[in-house]
Design a protein around this nucleic acid. Structure first.
Length: 1023
RNA sequence: GCUCGGGUGGUGGAAUUGGUAGACACGUUGGACUUAAAAUCCAAUGAACAUUAGUUCGUACGGGUUCAAGUCCCGUCCCGAGUACCA
């Protein structure tokens, strides 16, 4: 019986489903292992071979852990809220819930295209997912709990004393006792002090307004990243290079009233928590940079002839005597207040000009120095000298206090600014030349011209300066974080609705027992005419506080019926806690996850996903977990113990080269006269050009000229320089009769993508298929290589539909089988590395599986004997057990595939058919190629699935060697090998080596100076 | 600019604490089987010279440490990722 993978795989996938083989129980008897993949966004494009890479890796580990006796939780679900579904809804009018369902479960979309569906595609690869615990973030039964967590955040504040989140009721109690003077909380900047009495005398509304400044999720007027094209605000991590991550749209800064998450309260814990996580250093570093802790001081400068004071943050208080000016961000509150009448116009112009610039412009143009003097002066805290106050857009409103004390001798930006505007530069570093550029003045530099800091070095001066500032009451040590509070509102339809209604303009939470608040129906998914979010179009979107249900907007009376929040939550809301949801399989209606379940599963032992989530999802999920831990809602501080980022699988794009006629010399009489179009029925150059322009394709090797990017052809297309003797010659032979015609035409070649499915493994294009691929190519002509083949060019690029380089895993499963796909994806290279997909290479692992199959068969029949295995076979097996076990633990899956290949090659050479070997081998292979392993296992007489068969135990005794093949080197160069017993002593080895004829030949009469012998390793003869 | 990775055959990639560089595959070439093709099997395959033993050069480049360096140290170049006026 030959290896009929299609039947085998279908059979076992059905078996696993029917028998619920991978259903995890919350049974506490066994040790637990929780292996998780970042759940996918179910897009309509379906899976390509890059998507399952991480899933295969985690599946191998999950299956391995089952063999080792762990109770394994390996769930899967869908992050099904998001922008693409909504954009598609806007275009087609279909409800995002419908398209999302089709994308997951399969069906036919409105365009009539058949969609296979994520689930079917995943099932085909044979994952051991426990689908009984599936989650979908857009399912009301799920987002009910997302809304519930939001309410918990609203009902909490961050107490710096106990360094954790506490219920808001505790805060109210504190306010009632002592006002806010004794409260040490993370809150908005500039909350006014009040006494207990004052608190009690505030109106209800005033109290709520104050509490809002303390809540962990709060509504506030903040400067946000507004993306006009997407019609929504974006979080910092959703912006890349000043444009939106999705679609690359422009982003501008705008003040808007928005929900925010006070993630900044957790900055220090998020930073500190990284230390104990088993994540890659680079990912931790990315998060550290994003949190951006800097330690320094806050200093206060009085403004001359004014009530106002400017607070600045600096990491270098030691350089305070070098201050020669101050710079405020143009958006700084004080700008309007301190500007002198003479400078008013210039300042206002500048402020307006900067406000107009988009983020991208501002970023693109960091080199240009700009700024304006406000006319005001501050007073230096120590020297009491007048310090001019400038504004400049190199100072960011959002960082620190939005103001800097400029020390041009020590900071290059201040230096450049000072030079540009002829502001004096004061050197406070001893024996340092600052005539060309600023000097950091840290290591070994001594401070000068600085009163009490004179003669000190950086570290000492830093402490002294802070001490003196504190003494003056004009500053203190301070730590600043780059991490900003995260904007939590989106002006979108396809997201979680907030469980919030508004009474007297103040947000009120809907009580938890009335959740979920379901998304209302709207007739269109666009913002309203008035610029409200899409939920502004809903007719039934008001909260009745008597009936506790969503009712028609017509009933709003602001007494018992109120308007509901129109924004929805961002994409990261649902993904910030889903890993806890999987733990719960029974009481999903009653709790987001039960305490018992969470106590058992704790946190994710292995999390695999893309590194693009470093500053988004992974940070937010850690934040929510810490919050939930503070409120005793979950038992753990960190959600993901170990994390691996799988590398991207790149596509190998195929290119065809299209001939384009340029610089056609029109109507040159003497050329036309002599032209004979006897090979094609053409009567003029114009006709020829019109007919064949962009219709002739030249094979790759005819176009071996340098490629130049060509702006005229849009992105991704290139033009090749225009010297093509070969093509010209062929053109002449094939289409034209006169060489002179070519003088009237010059050609260029344009490179365009061809669908990779039209190309075989030898890079030959299927010309007929290509002609039929797109209508415009139907009548194309091809100039082939001498052997008549059309060869395409290849280039490695990101896999994408628009590049026609997508390889569908379904096709690979059909042609080679899921086991081959799984093994080949692992065989490609290290999991974390980006690597190109090359379907040609797949035959290697496919052949391996065929050889594996043959090892268990003699002709058509299963051939397994109960005889004792030979020592060689046992050695091959145990070598493999050792290596593969180590490899899985190191996540080095590519090398374990090699190990299997070596093992099977050896066993085949030994003609091994012993049950004791072959059963163990089937278990070893099973995590990687589960279908063939199940089939062989059952053929060998087992009734139960192989999934929980005990992993073979490695035994050293089978590997013990008696001899070693020693490499014998002369001056470090290996010359020959010599088999010697491992029992020999150093002296005996030396004797044996020296007696060898080859040694004497190498020495050629010389006497060795030295002989290095490392028993069991090497012999090196020097001299 | 800064931070973190990385540079090994025609290709993807191996190489425990420094100890036989190129495992395992792909590709290529030659051969067997076949009317033929596919499939399968066998052999060769870092480069150059010698074509029989053998010699020399080879892990981005230049130095160094060592009996021995892809691996450790110093310098340079290149590629990738993250971040970017962060005071």
């Amino acid at each position: 019986m030959s290896y009929n993978f299609n039947d085998i795989e279908a059979k076992w996938q059905k078996y696993w489903e029917e028998n619920q083989t991978f259903k995890a129980s919350n049974d506490r008897e066994k040790p637990k292992f929780y292996g998780l993949d970042m759940f996918p966004y179910p897009s309509g494009a379906g899976l390509h071979v890059g998507h399952p890479l991480g899933y295969i890796a985690s599946d191998i580990v999950a299956r391995f852990k089952r063999h080792q006796g762990f109770n394994v939780l390996h769930p899967q679900g869908y992050d099904s809220f998001g922008l693409p579904a909504e954009q598609y809804a806007i275009q087609t009018g279909q409800h995002p819930a419908d398209t999302t369902q089709v994308n997951i479960e399969g069906g036919v979309d409105k365009a009539g295209d058949k969609i296979e569906g994520y689930r079917k595609q995943l099932d085909k690869i044979g994952f051991s997912f426990d689908w009984s615990r599936e989650v979908r973030t857009s399912d009301p039964n799920y987002y009910k709990w997302t809304q519930w967590i939001f309410i918990q955040l609203f009902e909490s504040w961050y107490d710096k004393e106990s360094d954790k989140a506490r219920p808001i009721s505790d805060l109210i109690e504190l306010f009632n006792q002592d006002g806010n003077t004794k409260v040490n909380a993370v809150c908005d900047e500039g909350v006014a002090n009040f006494s207990a009495e004052a608190w009690q005398n505030f109106t209800e509304k005033e109290q709520q307004e104050i509490l809002l400044q303390y809540r962990l999720t709060y509504l506030a007027e903040t400067e946000v990243n507004w993306c006009p094209d997407l019609g929504t605000v974006l979080a910092n991590d959703e912006i890349v290079n000043g444009v939106s991550e999705r679609g690359g749209h422009a982003v501008v800064r705008k003040k808007m009233k928005q929900w925010s998450m006070r993630i900044s309260a957790y900055a220090e814990r998020l930073l500190h928590g990284l230390e104990d996580l088993d994540w890659t250093e680079s990912l931790k570093e990315t998060q550290r940079n994003w949190i951006g802790k800097s330690v320094g001081a806050q200093a206060q400068f009085k403004i001359q002839n004014s009530e106002f004071k400017i607070d600045v943050f600096t990491t270098r208080p030691d350089t305070i005597f070098g201050v020669t000016f101050m710079t405020l961000a143009p958006e700084h509150d004080l700008v309007a207040k301190i500007t002198t009448p003479e400078q008013k116009e210039a300042v206002e112009d500048y402020v307006q000009a900067t406000a107009k610039r988009s983020e991208r412009e501002r970023m693109a143009d960091v080199k240009t120095i700009s700024g304006v003097f406000t006319g005001a002066y501050a007073e230096h805290p120590f020297t009491k000298e007048a310090v001019p106050i400038w504004i400049g857009d190199y100072v960011l409103a959002g960082y620190g206090t939005g103001a800097v004390m400029a020390v041009p001798c020590g900071d290059q930006r201040d230096y450049d600014f000072a030079k540009h505007f002829n502001i004096p530069i004061k050197n406070i570093f001893k024996d340092v030349d600052i005539s060309e550029e600023a000097h950091a003045g840290k290591d070994g530099t001594v401070i000068d011209n600085s009163d009490f800091l004179n003669g000190l070095t950086y570290k000492k001066a830093l402490k002294t300066a802070i001490y003196e500032l504190e003494k003056l009451g004009q500053g203190k040590g301070k730590t600043n974080y780059r991490l900003r509070d995260a904007v939590f509102s989106r002006q979108r339809y396809w997201g979680e609705p907030f469980p919030v209604y508004y009474k007297n303009g103040m947000p009120k939470m809907i009580q938890a027992q009335h959740l979920p608040i379901r998304l209302p129906e709207v007739e269109k998914y666009l913002p309203t005419q008035e610029g409200e979010p899409p939920l502004g179009r809903a007719d039934v979107w008001a909260w009745d506080t008597q009936k506790n249900e969503v009712v028609s907007n017509e009933l709003i009376d602001d007494k018992t019926v109120f308007s509901l929040e129109l924004n929805t939550m961002p994409g990261w809301a649902g993904s910030s806690w889903y890993f806890f949801r999987y733990m719960e399989n029974e009481k999903r209606d009653e709790v987001f996850a039960s305490a018992e379940a969470m106590q058992y599963w704790q946190n994710v032992d292995l999390y695999i996903g893309g590194s693009e989530h470093a500053t988004g999802h992974l940070l937010y999920a850690r934040f929510w977990t810490k919050f939930l831990k503070d409120r005793n809602l979950v038992p753990v501080e960190e959600p993901f113990k170990k994390l691996i980022n799988q590398g991207m699988i790149l596509g190998e794009s195929a290119f065809v080269y299209r001939v384009r006629f340029v610089n056609v010399v029109e109507s040159t009489a003497n050329i036309l006269d002599e032209v004979e179009f006897n090979k094609v029925e053409i009567e003029s150059i114009e006709e020829f050009v019109n007919k064949y322009n962009f219709k002739i394709f030249a094979s790759k090797n005819l176009c071996k000229t340098r490629l130049y990017p060509d702006a005229n052809f849009g992105t991704g297309q290139l033009e090749i320089s225009s010297n093509f003797p070969l093509i010209e010659e062929i053109l002449l032979n094939k289409f034209l009769s006169s060489e002179k015609l070519l003088k009237g035409i010059s050609i260029s070649v344009q490179k365009i993508h061809a669908d990779v499915s039209l190309v075989n493994t030898s890079n030959e294009l299927d010309i007929e298929a290509f002609k039929n691929w797109r209508e415009e190519f139907n009548d194309a002509e091809f100039i082939t290589e001498e052997n008549g083949k059309y060869i395409v060019g290849r280039e490695v690029e990101k896999m994408s539909k628009s590049k026609y380089n997508v390889v569908n895993p379904d096709d690979i499963c059909n042609e080679y089988g899921a086991d081959t796909l799984r093994m080949y994806e692992m065989f490609l290279g290290p999991l974390e590395q980006a690597k190109p997909w090359n379907t040609a290479g797949i035959t290697g692992v496919h052949n391996f599986l065929k050889k594996l199959w043959k090892l268990y068969h003699n002709g058509e029949e299963l051939s397994v004997s109960d005889d004792k295995a030979s020592p060689e076979s046992l050695k091959s097996l145990h070598k493999t057990i050792k290596k593969v076990t180590e490899d899985i633990e190191d996540f080095s899956f590519n090398t374990s595939i090699s190990t299997f290949m070596i093992c099977v090659n050896e066993l085949a050479a030994q003609k091994c058919n012993n049950r004791e070997i072959l059963e163990s081998l089937a278990i070893l292979v099973s995590p990687y190629a589960p279908h063939i392993a199940e089939e062989l296992w059952s053929k060998m007489g087992h009734q139960e699935s192989i999934a929980t068969a005990a992993y073979p135990k490695f035994e050293e005794k089978f590997l013990v060697e008696s001899t070693k093949t020693y490499p014998v080197s002369f001056n470090g160069k290996m010359r020959f090998t010599l088999d010697l017993s491992l029992d020999l002593s150093k002296d005996e080895i030396e004797k044996a080596v020296m007696e060898d004829a080859r040694t004497q030949k190498q020495l050629d009469g010389r006497t060795p100076k030295k002989v290095i012998i490392v028993p069991g390793k090497i012999v090196n003869i020097v001299g």
